[in-house]
Design a protein around this nucleic acid. Structure first.
Lengths: 337, 337
DNA sequence: CCCATAGCAGAAAGCGGTTTCAAAAACTTC
DNA sequence: GAAGTTTTTGAAACCGCTTTCTGCTATGGG
């Protein structure tokens, strides 16, 4: 494999000149030509690790998902998020290192920072407490952008989808359609997004003067089974709600099933709203009206913020929120008289 | 940030001894204790780029997807595949670099190999011709494992889901259920998996003595819309098939819709089979009977093979095939008399 | 008691680039 | 044509770690 010395020898100049030439610094026409020619002839590409050592940076960032297992909830939005990140990094010729770590192995992330494996990282913490523990373990001043906000922690730099706005959009959409008796199927208590959604839902109920009734509220695990169970629970109430807002699409599909089993037509007898706008939302029957999280854009903005931090900009720690949107399909409609 | 010299000074030994101690080579009890203590005190972690430069390897592999755009087809299996890869790499403390590149930018991958950004790579080529072009551009002997086989190219090292086996499983399943008039909705012609599936389907039809009738065959783009259009086309035939095999789940959902629009009940009037077993298969109504691709396992095996290549094993270039499985749900049943 | 052997430690040489520093060359200016 | 200025160049240092090589000390055997 060709080194800078080989190029120097072939071009009849010094390694210094080779480096100058290849990095666009001032060299004579003559030298430039000879160096470029020699480099092309030997198919030369500077070795990353050597360049990194000298530069003190590795030209790559980490994108890490904290997850205890093979969690299919991520299927829906991982790819566009990765694509958004990748797109922004390409502008600076940065690479992305990806990994999935369990919540008990956060020291892996700390190690990656300490040994300078990456110049900065994006983190999807998922669970309460993760952000806080990371802030403690990671070296001070190490560039990190969190892609979910943990209400139980001081935030650091964040680029998140505005969960509260999404919830407000959803509930106001149902309210606008005339629904006043609204049920809720929430997600797992330890999930940061779920915590935010739950808080927001209660606030919006209060604002709109809707009553938050425990028999209309169920707690699931973000999967179809628990969504179905949750809906069954809600339908047992003596007077049932005319609409149910599920905190993700999988549970909404489950709810759809439970409604069908109970002989209820969706959306005629009961409206159902999802959250996330994953693939399943479009695939179900009826197709789900749901809240779309612009994760491609989130990936872009988070990566952009991280790159600014890496370049040394002193950004104040703040939470950058991206507004979700309502995607109207067929699972919700105006309340029948 | 602490270096090996700092540790040496603090422990009162030479850098050599520090390195020996930290890497488990023979040093005296005394030295070992002092070095470890000093390292802990300074929270020392050896710098990756320095270690890489000396070692001549970077302890990370690349996983690259060739894709022209934001292709949602990947949603379904990207995450488990990443998880499988990640799990195997963790055993060797290797990291994964991830990227999505367009087919016209394959030189990005060549560059990553030439500049030693990664020690090897896994590639999901997706389109015909990509494998061949990569084999030409990548340095000879550079460890690469392809995760899809391109019938138009000599394969290199491959770990793939056996597409032909999946197709055979699907069609024989329908045949076993009594179906003799079977339609097919194939995918885009330039997609390598689709090519293999199409060849296999024709072969199985021949073996089983089924007739391959053009009016029962449609070609879609792996998305719902084209699946729906394909099914409409097939239903126009004077005598319609009793079952339709779609080359992926999204198109199968589309087919479900077209059948419903035409007043046909699935699976009573017509059986529909998907391929991939993505999330949507379980979410649709009726839930799709489909072919499951064990992508988690594929990720593991591909990563394992790549690690063996990186460690210098001389593996013969061959195609390692993983058998898919039929997942029976509700969209296919025994043909009514 | 001396020599061979083994065990451990340190100096120094890389790995392959970039950057500093100083010298040489080219070019102005008077 | 000499002095001063700007370009261009090359030698050498450096990034931080590993590894070779050499030397020293302790141990055992003849």
């Amino acid at each position: 494999m060709a080194t800078v010395k080989d190029i120097a020898r072939l071009a009849g100049v010094s390694p210094t000149t080779v480096s100058w030439a290849l990095n666009g610094k001032r060299v004579s026409e003559e030298s430039l030509r000879k160096v470029l020619e020699a480099a092309r002839e030997l198919n030369y590409h500077p070795k990353m690790s050597a360049r990194s050592l000298r530069a003190g940076k590795v030209f790559s960032i980490g994108f890490y998902i904290v997850n205890p297992s093979l969690d299919p909830r991520l299927n829906g939005y991982l790819f566009p998020m990765l694509a958004g990140i990748s797109k922004v990094l390409a502008e600076d010729n940065y690479a992305m290192q990806f990994d999935i770590v369990t919540p008990d192995k956060l020291d892996i992330l700390a190690k990656k920072a300490l040994e300078h494996s990456v110049d900065g990282m994006l983190v999807l913490p998922q669970f309460s407490g993760v952000t806080e523990r990371l802030l403690k373990e990671l070296p001070d001043k190490f560039p990190v952008v969190y892609m979910q906000q943990d209400p139980a922690s001081s935030p650091g730099h964040c680029v998140v989808i505005d969960q509260a706005a999404g919830v407000e959009l959803a509930i106001r959409h149902l309210h606008h359609l005339g629904h006043r008796a609204i049920g809720v199927i929430a997600g797992p208590a330890e999930h940061v997004d779920n915590v935010l959604r739950l808080q927001a839902a209660q606030a919006v109920f209060r604002d709109l003067g809707l009553s938050w009734r425990d028999e209309w509220v169920a707690h699931g695990q973000f999967d179809m089974e628990s969504g179905e169970a949750g809906m069954r629970h809600i339908l047992q109430a003596p007077d049932r709600p005319t609409a149910v807002f599920c905190f993700n699409d999988y549970m909404a599909i489950g709810a759809l099933r439970a409604a069908a089993s109970a002989g209820l037509r969706v959306p005629v007898d009961v409206s159902i709203l999802g959250f996330d706008d994953t693939d399943v939302a479009e695939a179900s029957t009826p197709a789900l009206t749901t809240i779309q999280q612009p994760v491609f854009q989130q990936g872009q903005q988070a990566a952009a913020m991280l790159m600014r931090l890496i370049k040394g900009e002193e950004l104040p720690k703040h939470v950058e929120r991206i507004r979700p949107a309502v995607i109207e399909r067929s699972s919700a409609e105006r309340r029948r008289a």
